[in-house]
């Protein structure tokens, strides 16, 4: 699972480079994000701009990541493509996460 991680002040951005977060990679995703956010600042933005498919395993892996980061750090989501957004909406997980339309929106909010 390839991730691009950038730290800036109080937050870091984790950009997923794979197009799918599904059952085949859910465990690898969780482990990679965990490893990359070990010393992360209080807020972690998960950038999903490149992800075009997520299934229930991928959704579960993102929830697990949020739980792992809590309570010291918060996981924010950005750049959900339509099929990914749909899974969050159907499961109402969009009510659990703070979601930004684009990574830029998330960065603007964090820098403000």
């Amino acid at each position: 699972m390839e991730l691009l991680v950038k730290t800036e002040g109080d937050f870091c951005t984790v950009s997923v480079q794979d197009p799918r977060i599904d059952a085949a990679v859910a465990v690898a995703f969780k482990e990679a994000v965990r490893a990359q956010t070990q010393d992360a600042p209080p807020r972690v933005i998960l950038d999903l701009t490149k992800v075009t498919f997520i299934d229930s395993s991928g959704l579960g892996a993102i929830v697990a990541t949020m739980k792992h980061l809590a309570p010291e750090r918060r996981l924010l989501l950005a750049g959900l493509t339509p099929p990914v957004k749909k899974v969050f909406e159907l499961t109402r997980m969009d009510s659990v996460f703070q979601i930004f339309l684009t990574l830029e929106d998330a960065l603007d909010a964090e820098r403000a």
Partner: peptide, 14 residues
């Protein structure tokens, strides 16, 4: 609480 959020059970719901 965050730590009690479900990580599974979404499949059959979907």
């Amino acid at each position: 609480d965050v730590e009690d959020l479900p990580e599974g059970g979404f499949g059959w719901f979907l």
